[in-house]
Nucleic acid binder design. Structure first.
Lengths: 240, 240
DNA sequence: AGAAGTTTGTGAACGGTTGCACAAACTCCG
DNA sequence: CGGAGTTTGTGCAACCGTTCACAAACTTCT
């Protein structure tokens, strides 16, 4: 049924329609990281950088960085390195920050509101063009000049703004119903913050971000650390 | 990533049982998902479930689920399935939701505040025991009964609460400096929402959540979809 | 009790990802 | 201009994660 692409990072799952272009999923997930590192470098006036230095800034192995970039093309110069501005342009084009993506946010509780205010979206080529929520207390409120409208008007809002990307920050119970409506309206990418697994048809991409889950993964490692110490202490008198 | 597996301590022959336990990182990342699915099932009064049904609820392949669980032990019964309550207990114990983890949040802008209010933390065994921020406007404010204190008092707060897990929701510029202080104070797990790569010593676990990055990954696929349509049109429109 | 049906647990094959190691392509310097 | 030094791009091998497929262990039915 649903053939799912794979992720190595527990934080998110992607369902990919096809791997047409042939850039590995793992590489795609790292492109935004490179992009941010490059932007930071450009801001500091650096105009050329080696794979080693860029890799360190991005927190990856330098061979990995070079291989990743090689999927996009040969944008470096041997003996020199990469031109920061040029590489930034190329990766940006690939990732799609060339044009500005209209985004709709559904659910404006604490998290949704924080996301609406989040500057990291705008700075990376996304514009929040619509926000919907069922609560009368929120409808009409404005964030960065955009008014929150009724969840009931979801259909109109999507049609009006042409958003193809939606951010879901509703309670878990409401998420699937909203997702169904979004998919029906032609939305093909969903960033899901709700604590539930969404079922969507092929061709729709879903990435899940679950904040509690991230903490639990950390807690696992944390616990293992204390377990180790525990074992260490016990290994003084007792035979295992 | 810098998953710990090295000797944390030069001193004694620590030879950590870390790798000894040998649960793959990918499996660990899925355990919280299973846990949530099980909780939901328990709430609905279901007390036994097959790997197939649980896998569907968790959005994974059933063989994968069984293999994942097999790393923890043999908690199922052939011909029957898994006892929901028992399995939930076992996974919970493994993940560390047995005891309650104290968490400190650094940075209470929009995102940090949303996280402080996020119910998904408390419901999964985490308690926000301290919140720090440098802004005078925020210091003294209370969220769920806990007062925000000055970032300058970070040292005292960590010592007082014994938090080993920190959530970083500061601007990117401040993140590394805060992380250094946290690590120095003995914090060994950091959930990083700041848009920067943190450098930390071995033995410290960092998980990064970058909201903009997630959207960019979606945008990549979104763009490829339109590229495909474009090519399709140029070719004279043969439906694939 | 035995046969038929169900479901787990896991060995083995497969496919994707990572990292090494090195030739190729460039710069710099004498 | 040639040799020394630098850095990219990539074939290759090791590794990790996923999925298949099937024996083992259980339930149910006759």
């Amino acid at each position: 049924m649903s053939s799912a692409g794979r992720s190595l990072d527990g934080g998110s799952q992607v369902q990919v329609a096809a791997a047409a272009k042939g850039i590995p999923e793992a590489t795609i997930a790292r492109l935004p990281v490179y992009l941010r590192a490059l932007t930071s470098l450009a801001d500091r006036g650096i105009d050329t950088i080696s794979s080693g230095a860029l890799a360190e800034a991005a927190g990856v192995n330098s061979a990995q960085l070079r291989k990743d970039l090689s999927y996009l093309g040969s944008y470096g110069t041997r003996g020199v390195g990469y031109d920061v501005e040029y590489l930034r342009f190329q990766i940006g084009r690939e990732v799609g920050s060339a044009h500005e993506w209209p985004v709709i946010i559904v659910g404006l509780g604490n998290l949704g509101t924080a996301l609406a205010n989040y500057s990291g979206f705008t700075s990376r080529g996304f514009r929040v063009v619509a926000m919907v929520d069922p609560s009368p207390d929120l409808i009409g409120k404005r964030i960065h000049g955009v008014a929150i409208t009724d969840l009931a008007d979801l259909e109109e809002e999507v049609a009006r703004t042409g958003a193809a990307i939606a951010v879901l920050a509703t309670p878990a119970e409401a998420a699937q119903a909203v997702a169904d409506r979004l998919v029906y309206l032609g939305v093909t990418s969903i960033l899901n913050f709700a604590a539930t697994v969404l079922a969507v048809p092929d061709g729709v991409n879903v990435r899940k971000v679950d904040l509690g889950q991230e903490l639990q993964i950390l807690a696992y490692h944390e616990q293992r650390k204390s377990d180790d110490v525990q074992r260490e202490l016990e290994r003084g008198g007792t035979a295992q």
